[in-house]
Each structure stands twice: as structure tokens, then as C-alpha cells.
Computed example of a mutant assay.
Amino acid sequence: MSCLRLGIDEAGRGCVLGPMVLGACLIDEQQVDHLRTLGVRDSKRLSAKRRIELRAQLEELVVSWKTSSVSARQIDHHSINSLGRDVTLALIKELRPDQVVIDAPVPPAGLPAYRQAIRQRLELSGLGHIEVIAENKADDNHPSCAAASIFAKTTRDQLLHELAEARGVNLGSGYPSDPRTQTFLREEWRQHGSFPPWVRTKWETVRRIVAESAQGQLF
């Protein structure tokens, strides 16, 4: 009997703009080699064009897939790790795999505790039979996880594109180090004295921009 493998990965954890998106991709174990042949790999190692092409192929090929977003406001008011873990568990419960592979957002020393926390929550839900694999860089080693990263990244990219179009501005990548993102944040604060709800206002980048503006008004 074939094993159903679920890969889970996220996009946008470190961004200051927009949601964090978790992607989940359920495959039959017999599809692993085919995914490798297609060139499915960590989304960060693919061009935007190639990610879109692969996503279209994956949608037709895999058993099932799903994305789920964690909003900037949620991230501002709750632990991003707890939010990510809750969404991860919800995806597992919905897709019901035999095995789940998670690209774990914790340092190597934290992997055993992370795996145990996921297992315990699944056991409480009557899903203790699901094998849990949690690794760093799982999207490099497991095609199901790489496919999940493609679903997560393309979904987040589209959401950010829609936000930029609605505002008529260049938001950049949404990462704090991106000069275009920094310019948007500074101009937004200068013009309005506030930020839209999809800005993570508790991020250090935003706090610094607000503090610099306040300091500048003193002189």
C-alpha cells in the first residue's frame, strides 16, 4: 500500500510586509522520483517564472495541496512560532497523511522538542499514527516539502503583488533589508502617520522608522 506524504513549508516568516504563508503538498510516495525529474526544489532556488510553471504542473499532479496565511496583525499580537505551529497542525489534520515532513523553523538544537510538540498535539487529536519528520532545510531533501515551498512562495508573491497594485506603489520583496520596502514604509509613515493592516508594526524595522521620524521632529 502506498504511503501518503505531506510536505509543509512556509514563506514570508521574516518579512515586514504581508502575511506568512504556509504551503502543504500531499503526494503518493511513488511520485517522489517524478517530482525530482520535473525539477521540483526549494522555491528560493527557482526563478519566479519557473516557480509559476512548476506550480501549474504540481496542481495537476499531486494528490492534494493547500495554503494557509497568517496575517500581519496576527503576527503583531501573537508568537509567530505558535501561529505557525497551529496552522501546521491544522493542515495535517485536514489532509490526513501517513507521514508529514516539516521544514522546521527552529534551530537544530530545538528540533527534538519541536517534533515532540507536534506529535503530542496529533496524539490528542487521535492522529498519533502519523509519522512526523521535522528537519532544517527539509525543502532541500524532500520533494514533498520542496513542492510545498513552491505553493507557499507563489501564493505569497501573488498576495504581495495584489497589495502593490492596489496601492500603486513598489513594495519590493517585503523583507526589511530591501531598500524598496524601506522606502515604502518611510513614505507611508511620512504621509499618513500610520501603516496599513498588512504591515507588521512590531517589527524592528518599523519601530526604527517611527522612532527616527519622531526624533527628526524634535530638531
Rank of each mutant, 00 (worst) to 15 (best):
E59F: 04
V32W: 08
G126Q: 08
D42T: 03
D28C: 10
S69N: 10
A113N: 13
Q116E: 15
R73N: 05
S71F: 04
G23I: 00
L124C: 11
R121K: 15
L95A: 10
A90N: 06
L91Y: 08
S71M: 06
R115V: 13
Q30G: 10
A104K: 06
R13D: 02
P97F: 09
R115K: 15
V62P: 05
G84R: 03
L122F: 07
E131H: 12
R13T: 04
L61D: 02
L91G: 08
I27V: 11
Q116M: 11
E131W: 09
D33W: 10
L26Q: 04
P108R: 11
G23N: 01
V16G: 01
V101Q: 03
S64G: 11
S125E: 15
V62R: 05
L124E: 15
I102K: 00
S47H: 09
I102M: 02
P105W: 03
D28S: 13
L95V: 09
L22V: 01
E59R: 13
D103N: 05
R13K: 11
R51M: 07
Q30F: 07
S47G: 12
G14P: 08
H78C: 13
L35R: 01
E60Q: 15
N81G: 11
A72F: 00
L35N: 06
G128T: 08
L95T: 08
V40F: 01
T37P: 00
P19F: 00
A24C: 06
A24N: 03
T67Q: 05
L58A: 02
Y114W: 13
D86S: 11
L83I: 05
Q120K: 14
M20F: 00
L111F: 08
W65H: 14
